[in-house]
């Protein structure tokens, strides 16, 4: 695997291989020495054109646990604010010896341009592009589900028959998009719940059921996993819904909705959470919430992705 750009590119076997290697990477954190020499001498650049402390430090921790050298580049206060193009920025970093580039960019498709334009030879990992994809988030979500649902027997297996409900701003969410593709590949069944204004045109392409009414969806589907999406503050003024209180009442995971869920249902959130808006304190802090496990698993999954994209010299 030279690049990871989209979960839609992954076959079922490739996706399962990433999840299995993530299990091995997770095991490293139980060892006395929590570090591997695997990527010694390899340089990874975190090229972040958008603020994202959580994703960046997760990739940084993953690269460092594999003994790679890490260079952090954030667009703020950099040559980009002086008008440098993506091509020149990437080539400058490659000239400094970057073997891998982890890129977060506000423009959908920027990572694919970087990977396929021939500007640089480095492996490219998409860390979130515009409203397009965030593949490592979807992989860590799938990993978290497989661990919680199948436990130690999960190795080598997919998510066949698991019912996942994704709730909130599907329109702008790269997390929702990456999850929808990956979950479909892994055999899970996806339901979207959102106000009609926050669903993309052509939502049918995802092969998912769609509900506008959260309570009706919960009663009809009885999901195994409820994944709450973050409502970004900048959307609040764009007339997608009347106001925050009304959003929370109609599409938030309130205490009442939490208690109505089936006993085994997991509550997931990619973070950072807007408590009181899309998720209540009761839901965020309940034992069925996997929010902190998702953060921990994120490092393991990103280690697996960096291993697969950067360790081998010869492509299969």
């Amino acid at each position: 695997m030279k690049h990871l750009l989209s979960t839609a590119d992954l076959s079922r076997d490739e996706a399962i291989q990433i999840l299995d290697i993530s299990e091995d990477m997770a095991a490293v954190s139980t060892h006395e020495v929590r570090k591997l020499p695997t990527l010694r001498g390899i340089t990874v650049v975190n090229l972040f054109f958008e603020d994202s402390t959580r994703t960046r430090i997760s990739f940084e921790a993953a690269a460092k646990r594999l003994s790679a050298d890490v260079i952090n580049f954030s667009a703020k206060g950099s040559s980009v604010s002086k008008g440098e193009s993506l091509k020149d920025t990437a080539q400058t970093l490659a000239a400094m010896g970057a073997d891998g580039i982890v890129i977060r960019h506000p423009a959908s498709g920027a990572p694919r341009v970087l990977a396929t334009s021939g500007w640089v030879d480095a492996g490219v990992v998409n860390a979130g592009d515009g409203t397009h994809e965030h593949p490592t988030q979807a992989l860590l979500d799938a990993f978290t589900m497989r661990r919680r649902i199948l436990g130690d027997s999960g190795r080598g297996r997919d998510l066949d028959g698991v019912k996942v409900m994704i709730v909130g701003d599907v329109l702008h969410s790269r997390v929702a998009r990456s999850n929808a593709w990956l979950l479909k590949t892994l055999g899970a069944h996806v339901t979207f719940v959102a106000p009609p204004t926050l669903l993309p045109n052509g939502v049918a392409a995802f092969d998912a059921d769609v509900f506008y009414d959260f309570d009706e969806a919960l009663a009809r589907v009885k999901p195994d996993v409820v994944m709450m999406l973050r409502i970004q503050q900048e959307r609040m003024n764009d007339a997608f819904f009347p106001n925050g209180r009304e959003y929370a009442r109609s599409w938030g995971l309130s205490a009442a909705r939490l208690h109505g869920l089936p006993e085994h249902t997991l509550v997931m959130h990619p973070g950072p959470m807007n408590r009181g808006l899309e998720i209540s304190d009761e839901a965020a802090d309940s034992p069925r919430s996997t929010v902190l496990e998702q953060v921990t698993n994120g490092v393991s999954v990103r280690m697996a992705v960096l291993y697969l994209t950067l360790a081998a010299g010869v492509t299969n």
């Binding site: 695997m1 291989q17 299995d20 290697i21 299990e23 091995d24 095991a27 591997l36 020499p37 695997t38 190795r155 291993y307 697969l308 360790a311 081998a312 010299g313 010869v314 492509t315 299969n316």
Partner: peptide, 21 residues
């Protein structure tokens, strides 16, 4: 004990999948 992630020839070969330790 799986040694894949400690090998010195990873860059000279196609990707190897680690096995559980």
């Amino acid at each position: 004990i799986d040694a894949t992630l400690y090998r010195d020839d990873l860059r000279r070969q196609p990707t190897r999948a680690p096995r559980p330790t």
